[in-house]
């Protein structure tokens, strides 16, 4: 299979996606479009965590923290100064916070950059830790971000958070960013740098012996992942139009981790498929939490049931199919072509 074949097929795939989005926008109701938007953001988030954990082997539980940073930076930049003047009820915002304003694309990018910069700063000391210690330390970092967000009302409006964030994050922005992340991450993973990420995951000692500057590459992977987590946070802020510190609890990281584990650690296609599937099922399961009316009988909803189901699902995956949906396998055009050839032969 030639390179330009792959390129043409990818181009077609993007075209099909665009056509589908046009159709979705025209024919689907607001609720379904919202779910589609969440699918894009969750795929983006899953890819970013998979880069850090699945491909580089750093067990990070700090995603909610990076998302919070991206969300706050983005929200502050896209809220108009007038809106901010109204929003900050507890204490007035710092003048530079109130006057800061930027177009959406810049705001999202800035959110990503802020998260990446923070990742570089905390990664510098933390990435020396291994395995579970890294996990618990990054989790601690995310909690600190949340507590700080609660306590700097002149920047974040404290526990009240922001309301009425402009809803710029439509299907095009979300899928655009998602696609950008997908292409960049796949490109990096296919380059020699990406091979070194995987080498670090497989055997850090051997990677060091082979001249790989493990620490620098870990920091790179961690910051890149945090960048896209920040982007995801920014998009989410604009999609939901409200944010507050309570939104960035550990459960947010848990949801992303669930997608990554279910899709397969170290599989981009796995993250994409699981990102879509988990989001849709999570939304669909909302019905068990809402009251159901059948004729004259109203069955009460059961709050918490969704997460009961999902945590059970996660445990089941870890117990019975640890490699998730895809393991480290990928679906690629080359793979499909080889499979078709084999079938024709048979």
């Amino acid at each position: 299979m030639k390179r330009y074949h792959v390129f043409a097929l990818n181009f077609m795939l993007v075209g099909v996606l665009a056509a589908l989005l046009v159709c979705a926008q025209r024919f689907l109701d607001g609720y379904s479009i919202q779910i589609l938007n969440l699918v894009a953001i969750n795929i983006l988030l899953a890819l970013s965590l998979n880069l850090i954990y699945g491909f580089t082997g750093m067990f990070s539980l700090g995603h909610a923290g990076f998302m919070a940073i991206g969300a706050y930076v983005c929200a502050i930049l896209i809220l108009s100064p007038d809106q901010k003047a109204m929003l900050f009820l507890l204490e007035p915002a710092y003048p530079w916070i109130e006057s800061a304003h930027a177009p959406f694309v810049v705001a999202v990018f800035a959110g990503g950059l802020a998260a990446a910069a923070m990742a570089a700063v905390v990664g510098f000391p933390l990435l020396r830790l291994g395995d579970d210690y890294l996990g618990i330390a990054t989790l601690g970092f995310a909690e600190i971000v949340r507590v700080v967000a609660n306590n700097v009302p002149r920047i974040t409006n404290g526990a009240l958070g922001f309301k009425g964030i402009p809803a710029y994050a439509n299907l095009w922005w979300n899928y655009g960013w998602c696609l950008l992340a997908l292409v960049l991450i796949v490109r990096i993973l296919r380059s020699n740098t990406g091979r070194c990420f995987k080498a670090i995951r497989d055997d850090e000692v051997a990677a060091r012996a082979m001249g790989v500057n493990v620490f620098r590459l870990k920091l790179l992977s961690f910051s890149l992942g945090a960048f896209f987590a920040g982007v995801g946070g920014g998009l989410l802020a604009s999609l939901l139009t409200t944010i507050d510190p309570k939104m960035f609890l550990f459960v947010l990281t848990f949801n992303v981790l669930m997608i990554v584990v279910m899709g397969g650690l170290g599989s981009v296609t796995g993250s994409v498929i699981a990102g879509a599937a988990v989001t849709i099922i999570l939304e669909w399961l909302r019905f068990v939490e809402d009251p159901i009316t059948l004729g004259s009988v109203t069955l009460p909803g059961i709050p918490g049931m969704r997460m009961v189901v999902f945590s059970l699902l996660l445990i089941a995956v870890i117990l019975f199919r640890r490699e998730g949906l895809m393991g480290t396998r990928e679906i690629s055009w080359e793979g499909i072509a080889a499979w078709l050839r084999q079938r024709r032969k048979a």
């Binding site: 091979r195 995987k198 080498a199 995951r201 497989d202 055997d203 000692v205 051997a206 990677a207 012996a209 082979m210 001249g211 170290g266 480290t328």
Partner: peptide, 13 residues
């Protein structure tokens, strides 16, 4: 450059 007593390859690659 070196090799290891108990081979250390990048197993998944």
């Amino acid at each position: 450059a070196r090799t290891f007593q108990n081979i250390r390859l990048f197993g998944n690659g």
